[in-house]
Write a protein that binds this DNA or RNA. Structure first.
Length: 112
DNA sequence: TAATTGACCCTTT
DNA sequence: CAAAGGGCCAATT
């Protein structure tokens, strides 16, 4: 059953603090689905807007936006991040904004 | 049933 | 730095 994966992924994305970013692969790993970064992208696309997920805090492993540069979605994502204080170095997000959670802390919070 | 398609990633050239 | 090749897998055609 695939729906369970999505819930797990959404819960994990919800843990990303404002002003920080994480990669698709990182989310997959933290959600207990190593190697399934593509599933994370799919989960985000399926997530209802009412869920208000911090989707803009998820980007590629090289810290660039997943959307086509210049597209409406990319511009929106960029502005949302800037509004949170995330800094950019050209097309990519500054490394200092990369989320590095303590595993134990994350697992603790995911239990609820 | 088979092929294609993603809001992707990693290692090796 | 760029390209290539291989992984991944649910959903759609």
């Amino acid at each position: 059953m695939s729906a369970a994966y999505y819930a797990q992924i959404w819960q994990t994305i919800r843990q990303i603090p404002a002003g920080k970013v994480a990669s698709y692969g990182q989310i997959a790993d933290l959600a207990g689905l190593p190697g399934r970064a593509r599933l994370v992208g799919k989960a985000l696309g399926l997530a209802p807007a009412s869920m208000a997920l911090p989707w803009h805090r998820v980007l590629r492993s090289n810290l660039t936006l997943a959307f086509t540069p210049g597209s409406a979605q990319a511009l929106l994502q960029r502005s949302l991040l800037l509004a949170e204080g995330v800094t950019f170095a050209g097309q990519r997000v500054d490394k200092t904004s990369h989320w590095r959670p303590e595993l134990a802390d994350l697992l603790f919070r995911l239990q609820y």
